[in-house]
């Protein structure tokens, strides 16, 4: 097989890229693969790590052109006030500096999270007891509302009415708690 990039040397590196189920195959020679370094993080075996892989993934964010022409544009200069980490640093090391980074970089996170978590951007698991109360209620209401829609779609109206009443009572509790806390 001949390298698909230079069409001269034999292809010795074979990659399969799968993004959202879409499969693309690459057959490259060593040299062209090296030039594609960013795309094929696997190449540099010495420091192959999740870290690099992730940083590579995050770097996909910024189109290559933008990065080379003007490093100080766009999200790169965004800096977290608490830990002083910049968005650029984050994309380099693939780790946040503190919990506030999530808020600071919030605008740029959804595509990254989607890519890492099969399209998901919202937590639906455990809630710490301390946050408890109000948050638990809101979560329950959210889940019940989804259930309500499903039931209506399936025309199971009796069950749907039950769920609706549950939601109402939870919303009542939520209002009371809210007022209590204020």
């Amino acid at each position: 097989m001949i390298c698909q990039e230079c069409k001269q040397r034999p292809a010795t590196m074979h990659f399969t890229k799968i993004i959202n189920g879409e499969k693309t195959e690459f057959h490259l020679c060593e040299q062209c693969a090296k030039e594609h370094g960013d795309m094929f993080m696997f190449y540099e075996n010495d420091d192959f790590s999740l870290n690099n892989l992730l940083a590579g993934l995050l770097n996909f964010q910024t189109p290559m052109k933008e990065m080379t022409t003007n490093t100080f544009s766009g999200p790169d200069i965004l800096q977290c006030e608490t830990c002083k980490m910049t968005y650029h640093q984050f994309t380099q090391i693939g780790r946040f500096g503190c919990s506030d980074c999530y808020r600071t970089f919030a605008r740029y996170l959804p595509p990254i999270l989607k890519r890492l978590h099969s399209g998901n951007t919202t937590h639906s698991g455990k809630i710490p007891k301390r946050k408890g109360g109000v948050l638990h209620l809101r979560k329950q209401i959210f889940v019940l509302k989804q259930k309500l829609q499903e039931l209506v779609a399936r025309e199971e109206f009796e069950k749907a009415a039950e769920v609706r009443d549950q939601i109402r009572s939870l919303e009542y509790q939520l209002r009371q708690r809210g007022e209590g806390e204020m």
């Binding site: 919990s99 919202t122 937590h123 455990k126 809630i127 710490p128 809101r138």
Partner: peptide, 8 residues
């Protein structure tokens, strides 16, 4: 913990 993102 973040309401939307869960444990940070």
């Amino acid at each position: 913990f973040d309401e939307k993102l869960g444990y940070l």
